[in-house]
Design a protein around this nucleic acid. Structure first.
Lengths: 238, 238
DNA sequence: TAGATTGTTAATCGATTAACAATC
DNA sequence: TAGATTGTTAATCGATTAACAATC
């Protein structure tokens, strides 16, 4: 199994929207696999996600041909192919920078580990936290990033510091040679182009929801038009 | 100041991408305001965000005319206009459903309150948590949502339960008459069309970052081509 | 006035959906 | 074979960028 840079060398990065959907396909495939299914089709894959079957095929076509006309897709094969495409067919070591409420929550959050993302180092600038142990890891000063991260083979930094120190953290992440940032700070980061950034901006998401509720319409969700909404009464009610 | 449903009655909802950028413009305007600026231009607004000036003007044009040719935009006026458009010119009451690690972190997170989002009720199904007090609020059973949420004028539910119970929570949120969900569960929700959903999916974001780093290219960030990257040494280093 | 900057139209670009021959 | 479903091309749709007359 190739561990090379890309599945299609020389070709350009897939659009953001395609990658987001590929993650959803993967999740759905895993759910079908748990149910014991062996093959699936583009419509079986997409419909419960609110995605047209043609869209599913187009998205997969970006990376190659994985299906069989008349049959569909072998679930096992497609799962391992998509994992390899996304780059999650291995472990990723993460440094957590900023141990405020959000940082501490991410540390406790179990969901990451199950998908191969492991937090291996902690950084903060609060003198009350430096040297203390969280989850069996000693908190280091943020300025120590360039010194300690390379030895731990850290490849991603989850930045959970306040907005006004986020840009300063970027400089240290760069100096540490870390190629990816998951930015939780509500701040647009300026980064050199060897660095990848994904922003997780809770305020923006909340404001988006406020806009939708304020204007009382649907967007970004599956509605009964696409997939029938059935009230399953009694399932949680006492 | 009108509190009506929409700024442009009868017209359709703005595209998701436009609303996301409007939130960014608002944040930038607030930063310019703190610096004491009085007016700004589409390029001053957009460039540090990596957004073309024409894009800024096009986005604003979706809602009306707010600028002055040759002059630009009055910062104070544009801030209050954008707040009204987004629907964040008032307080929003939120119910937090699910008090696991993520739920407890959101509860402690101070960032929301400053922007008018207040958590006013807590729900969980863990018998060890029901009846206990977090942050001066008593934890109620999730099935109690339809009974207690209406009296508290809850308009948003932040859903932080495990994926396999998320859909069940939706039914209770609907029964409670709550019009908006901020979904943190890694699960595509099926909702009736009077309900708005915004998904915050950390796994998908992490997988996206893995893909980018794995394929070592830039996307979704400002690079030195658009805005020069200057190393500001010494600012955090000891 | 000259320079700056808007709002808007037209041109470009990219993404989604429809359609269908090929194939199992 | 007949039915199902792919991969792909063409058609549609929407979003971004460029250009520029209008205006302060």
């Amino acid at each position: 199994m190739s561990q090379g840079r890309s599945d299609r060398p020389g070709e350009r990065l897939a659009p953001k929207a395609v990658i987001g959907r590929v993650s959803l396909y993967l999740r759905r495939l895993e759910s079908l696999q748990r149910r014991g299914e062996v093959t699936t089709s583009s419509s079986q894959l997409g419909l419960p996600l609110g995605i047209h079957d043609a869209q599913v095929r187009k998205d997969l076509a970006f990376f190659g041909q994985f299906g069989c006309p008349g049959i569909g897709y072998r679930i096992d094969d497609l799962i391992s192919t998509l994992r390899r495409i996304l780059g999650i067919d291995r472990e990723w070591c993460i440094a957590l920078v900023g141990l405020g409420n959000l940082g501490q929550a991410l540390l406790k959050y179990k969901g990451f580990r199950g998908r191969g993302f492991r937090i291996l180092a902690l950084y903060d600038n609060d003198p009350d936290k430096i040297g203390k142990t969280f989850d069996d890891m000693v908190v280091r000063p943020i300025a120590d990033l360039p010194h300690s991260a390379p030895g731990l083979e850290i490849e991603m930094a989850a930045v959970c510091v306040p907005a006004d120190s986020a840009q300063e953290v970027v400089e240290l992440v760069v100096a540490a040679g870390i190629p990816g940032i998951l930015n939780f700070a509500p701040q647009t980061l300026i980064v050199p182009n060897q660095l990848s950034v994904v922003n997780v901006d809770l305020s923006i998401q909340l404001e988006h929801l406020a806009y939708q509720v304020h204007n009382q319409q649907v967007a970004g969700s599956i509605t009964p038009q696409t997939a029938p909404f059935r009230s399953r009464r009694g399932s949680l009610e006492s």
